[in-house]
């Protein structure tokens, strides 16, 4: 399991840049960023190298931030790589809230991040033979 930061933002010019500049100034490096939005709000979901410290400095600066457990699964970066994984997830009847992916430059593998309705279902993915990454792997 991996720890993901979620930061609430108003959906207006400058708010995302203020967030990323703030992380940069605090020497925090992002591995992945995924912004979901409604008309008025956005939630920036971030995987980074120092999650605990990031939460602390963001809270001190008045950001609204929560930590969410997500499942990061490694698959080969090739056509159909994610589809194979999702077939197995569907077969195991695992419910996904949302998902995004990025490529790990070190391993050249794709990393698929899921928020599961039932975080316990991560074990089923592991049982299906996939490598579930920890914070230390990212």
């Amino acid at each position: 399991m991996a720890q993901q930061l979620s930061v609430f933002l108003e959906n207006a010019p400058g708010h995302l840049s203020r967030l990323t500049r703030f992380l940069g100034d605090n020497n925090i490096n992002m591995h992945a960023l995924f912004v979901a939005d409604t008309g008025d709000y956005g939630v920036a979901r971030i995987l980074c190298d120092q999650t605990a410290r990031a939460v602390e400095v963001l809270r001190d600066a008045g950001f609204s931030v929560t930590v969410t457990e997500v499942v990061a699964v490694e698959v080969p970066d090739k056509p159909g790589g994610l589809a194979d994984l999702l077939d197995d997830i569907a077969a195991a009847d695992i419910d996904i809230s949302y998902s995004y992916c990025f490529v790990d430059p070190a391993t050249k593998n794709a990393c698929n991040v899921f928020r599961l309705k039932d975080p316990g279902a991560a074990q089923l993915i592991r049982d299906a033979g996939y490598r579930v990454l920890l914070d230390t792997d990212l």
């Binding site: 609430f8 409604t38 709000y41 979901r45 809270r59 609204s64 929560t66």
Partner: peptide, 13 residues
């Protein structure tokens, strides 16, 4: 929003 409110799922917001 109250600090600490879990808004990660857009549906909760």
């Amino acid at each position: 929003l109250k600090p600490g409110f879990d808004f990660d799922e857009i549906s909760s917001l």
